[in-house]
Nucleic acid binder design. Structure first.
Lengths: 199, 199
DNA sequence: AGTACATGAATGACTATTCATTCATGTAAT
DNA sequence: ATTACATGAATGAATAGTCATTCATGTACT
């Protein structure tokens, strides 16, 4: 029998259960069952239910964040940077099909712990977008009338909402590459300074 | 003393409390307190906690849906239609500053009841977007390479995410009109067929 | 024979919902 | 105009069920 790290086993069980049921409706016993451990075992590895959720963020989203930052640091062209951002996010969501739902569901749970966490760590992740847009504006290739703080929200909202498509039976025929291209070309054309200006 | 309908009073108290605390963390007694009624009174007007949440959707979102559909039926130009869609949504969210958060938070709560409701009624609302895009493609003014079902998600995701800006202290200086313009010009330029094509 | 890890039944805190009771208002008989 | 009675909306304390968390006990490895 392959012995898998219990911590990891619990994390991935919890991701699945949270995605299916939502944080509050998910029972510790559901997670324990899914991970094939006893309820009490979970408390050897985590302090409490919130801690499991936070760990999912720390570990899973932290990975995306870190990898994206490394890739971006080697790039200067804003549009290529956005391309990296989108594809990293969507590839990660595709790889772990429950993660997207956990982010969607849990990021919005109104809870002091999560709110704080979100404010600090997560907004750093979305601020990457507004920074890229500002860079493009400074280089004179992006529309100066775009408000980076509004655009970053629009952009991340689009990404977030789109990151669930593969779980919907009807729309499974779209690939990561297709979705990445769509979002990117939609947004890039929207943000570029050029001859096709609206208004 | 102005006597307000208790049903309405409870709905708006619940919207506020749900927005602040989230559905699961909100206590019936919080809602009762906010509405200045007794806990038990709530059960005269609603069957249970979920029923309150569903009623918020039915009543508040139903209103936006209905009004948007009427306005759209009098319009033929896809871009003007999108303009109507965005401004109706954002105006409603601005008017009731808690509603946006309730939608953001609660639409994602994984719960059979909500999920079903969302599938049926709510996706009809977002499908308006993909219908408009198809219309624009048929008229030859929108890019034929855009996938309407992906774009609708991107578009609604952007709207949804952006609809909370006025509640964030730092960014309160943006007006509804500004946000509407930003989203719209970003998206319209992104979707239009023209000389500024990406790729 | 000691250490570390794992178990799951028992505990206790929390809160949605219920329901016996109160109270404000309306009706009508005198 | 006053009294008696009826109604049902409103109340909030009590109930009852649900889990997160604990811990006494077990297991296995060194």
């Amino acid at each position: 029998m392959v012995v898998v790290n219990k911590h990891t086993k619990i994390i991935s069980a919890a991701t699945k259960v949270f995605a299916k049921k939502g944080f509050f409706t998910a029972r510790i016993s559901d997670i324990a069952k899914e991970a094939k451990v006893a309820d009490g075992t979970i408390y050897i590895y985590f302090n409490n239910k919130y801690d499991i959720l936070l760990s999912i963020f720390e570990e899973e989203i932290g990975k995306i964040f870190a990898k994206t930052e490394i890739l971006l640091s080697e790039e200067q062209d804003p549009s290529r940077m956005l391309q990296i951002y989108v594809s990293q996010y969507l590839q990660a969501m595709k790889k772990n099909k429950y993660l997207g739902e956990v982010i969607q569901i849990e990021l919005r749970q109104t809870n002091k712990v999560i709110r704080n966490y979100r404010k600090n760590k997560f907004s750093a992740y979305t601020n990457i977008i507004s920074d890229i847009i500002r860079k493009g504006q400074d280089q004179g290739i992006y529309r100066p009338d775009i408000l980076p703080d509004v655009a970053k929200r629009a952009f991340f909202g689009a990404l977030d909402e789109v990151s669930g498509v593969w779980n919907i039976s009807l729309e499974t025929h779209y690939s990561v590459e297709e979705i990445t291209d769509q979002i990117l070309s939609l947004f890039l054309q929207g943000v570029l300074l050029g001859t096709n200006q609206v208004k």
